[in-house]
Design a protein around this nucleic acid. Structure first.
Lengths: 250, 250
DNA sequence: CGTCGGTTTGATCCCTGTCAAATTAAGTGG
DNA sequence: CCACTTAATTTGACAGGGATCAAACCGACG
């Protein structure tokens, strides 16, 4: 093990990549953008198929409240949710916008460690947490799924930390839009159900900076913004095809 | 459930706290700073007591490498480790500096999802992952512990996201120093084993800004900086006692 | 005592938060 | 269907925090 000693000079961090290329993990395109395909949730889904009942939430209503007793888990049928925490100063951090097919509250045990609110009209299926616990006692593959799920969440948050620190506003917004588009199948424009402030609290920008970042991406031709809530990620071909606006685009 | 609809005007986020005081959770002093006291790890510890063997790492050496096969778990006996990820551009995010008594790699399954390096001389006890897996199959309370552990990690990362976005450099540094001091028992000065760049990559600042943040805290009397690696958090009494430097301390 | 790595300080620039005003969108009632 | 109201988005001006580049400083070590 001693030969693994790296001893990197702390003043030249860029060298890391040169000497240890395997350390570099692209922050786009890996697990963070393909949460569904890599990890399947057959056991959890069967659980929901048998024991769940449907629930509706109006836009803005609270689904889970940080600190309350967490006595259910949810599977989103339709709509978008924002999961967030708020600190004493009133700052809010939205760490995910789960959508159709995603689970809520899997990682909690006794109390919710976050608040979940409906962004638009939301339909979920929920099952009592006790049911999950009972099933966990006997179902080994469900246990595996749970661990995989939580491991995925953790890795995702750590990736978010990295992105938040290492990239500027427009790029963060672009990555978010890209990821949000991922789950939307169609080729047309994608509708953003959440407002600018929500996006800002997710990617760590003020509402105004989110607007500017949108303008920035639009100007560069990276996205097509039909209205303030309809966008489309431009493929490279599309970007090169129409470099309208001013050519003096420094 | 319909009466839970909140419908907050998005332009006045401060109102949230007024109407929903229970949403506010102090970001200091709660679980993030007391990881040991709230969740005990008796089962994991017994596992280590029986099956582990000791391993030493030189400063800078690699303990786990992101992407490699994760065939062990670790308990730190002494020393400090940095757990991080690096992206394609060479930006590094250190999301924790685990110390004596903390576990490493509990949340991984097949492959490491992060890189862990020894900051100073590190001694760990490790057990094969297969041992953990076998024990998990039969030991219910161990399973509970694992879940609690991962839930704690997740909540911690989400709190870090919030802190990273909502507070300025000096405050982030102060919180880090405060938290780092937590596990150090003595009343004297605390030794920082890691360099400025490491701290920067942890709290999202450049090396230089970390220096300035240190100066800032020192000037305000929030910390006592004996040398560049020895500090002490000043209690309120101590701060009020000697407001040396310039009184014009706007 | 000189070298090397790490730390500190300085100067400068850009991103982004904040405050403010303008514009657009979404309702609402006549 | 149109005038009116209110919420949300956009744009503008400005200031501050922090990144960056560079140079000075300091401590460990041979």
């Amino acid at each position: 093990m001693k030969d693994m000693t790296v001893s990197v000079p702390h003043t030249q961090p860029e060298k890391w990549l040169a000497t240890h290329p395997q350390l570099a993990y692209a922050s786009k395109g890996t697990s963070i953008n393909t949460p569904k395909s890599t990890r399947d949730s057959t056991e959890l889904l069967t659980l929901f198929r048998h024991n769940s009942f449907e629930q509706h939430f109006q836009p803005g209503s609270t689904i889970t409240l940080h600190g309350e007793s967490a006595d259910a888990i949810y599977l989103i049928v339709s709509g978008t949710i924002r999961c967030c925490t708020v600190d004493a100063e009133g700052h809010r951090q939205i760490f995910s916008f789960p959508k159709k097919g995603e689970f809520i509250g899997i990682s909690d045990m006794d109390r919710w460690h976050f608040t979940a609110e409906a962004v638009d009209h939301v339909i979920v299926r929920s099952i009592p947490r006790t049911t999950l616990e009972q099933e966990l006692a006997t179902n080994i593959s469900l246990r595996q799924e749970m661990r995989a799920h939580m491991r995925g969440l953790l890795a995702r948050r750590e990736r978010q930390l990295l992105t938040l620190v290492s990239t500027k506003g427009p790029e963060r917004l672009y990555r978010f839009l890209e990821e949000f588009a991922q789950t939307r199948s169609g080729t047309g424009h994608i509708v953003l159900p959440m407002c600018r402030r929500d996006i800002g609290d997710h990617i760590g920008l003020s509402m105004e900076s989110v607007c500017r970042a949108f303008g920035n991406l639009k100007r560069k031709g990276l996205i097509d913004l039909k209205s303030h809530e309809k966008y489309k990620i431009m493929s490279k071909a599309q970007r090169d095809a129409k470099p309208d606006s001013l050519p003096a685009d420094a």
